[in-house]
Write a protein that binds this DNA or RNA. Structure first.
Length: 223
DNA sequence: CTCCGGGAAA
DNA sequence: TTTCCTGGAG
């Protein structure tokens, strides 16, 4: 049993119920809504990005045409609470425009195309990088990818699955090797909670962490 | 590598 | 008052 499995075991007991509900609720959403929600969450805490999402929903329908219709200043006003709002309102309108232009507003190809082709097309969209692309592939597309965010990256490095010099793809593959395909969405959310609450960037709670025996970070400090 | 940025916690 | 949180693009 590896460190990641021990970690997930612990995280499941702590946050499993909450996380399962989130997985189910995201699966019911339209792909464009997931995309917008993910863009709003970039470099922003969950609380403020969900407030921004609700304000956006009140302002307009969250579809490519809905975003195109609303004025950029109105969009910026709704997104302000989440920060980075000038960039985001601009990029969101650009994103909506390109999705209409290139795909006639339809994102169902995320589900149908071969995985690498779908990923490639997602990455060509403005405001979509590896993490955002993988969120769509996993949550909407049902693809067996593990989206890697900053928490997951930090955990992977501390546990020794990756080095801080490694790029996104290398870290993703290293972790995917440890986690069964059908468990990856669930594991993604569990890992984030573990990272936020236990394996924090500053002052990690190593005294309550169940896997310090596996942890390079902890053992390097202890000695 | 720097910029984009608000709200909350320290 | 400062620091933290948190990805993508130029």
């Amino acid at each position: 049993m590896g460190a990641i499995n021990e970690l997930l075991n612990y995280a499941q007991k702590a946050w499993g119920k909450e996380v399962k509900q989130i997985v189910e609720s995201i699966k019911l959403r339209e792909p464009f809504e997931i995309l917008v929600g993910t863009v709003l969450s970039q470099n922003t805490n969950d609380k403020n990005s969900s407030i921004a999402f609700m304000r956006l929903k009140k302002l307009t329908e969250i579809t490519p045409l809905g975003i195109i219709r609303v004025k950029e200043e109105e969009l910026a006003k709704a997104l302000r609470v989440a920060g980075l709002y000038r960039e985001r309102s601009k990029r969101l309108k650009e994103l909506a425009r390109i999705i209409v232009e290139r795909y006639n507003g339809d994102l169902t190809w995320i589900k149908c195309l071969p995985l690498e082709e779908a990923r490639k097309r997602l990455l060509e969209l403005p405001g979509v990088g590896y993490k955002t692309a993988d969120i769509l592939l996993a949550f909407y597309g049902g693809r067996p990818v593990l989206p890697v965010d900053t928490h997951i990256r930090r955990i992977a490095i501390r546990l020794g699955y990756a080095s801080s010099k490694d790029g996104y793809e290398k870290i993703r593959r290293a972790l995917e090797n440890e986690i069964a395909p059908e468990m990856r969405i669930y594991a993604h959310l569990l890992l984030i909670r573990f990272g936020r609450n236990i394996c924090k960037a500053r002052k990690p709670l190593c005294d309550v962490c169940p896997i310090t025996a596996f942890c390079k970070h902890f053992n390097a400090r202890a000695t």
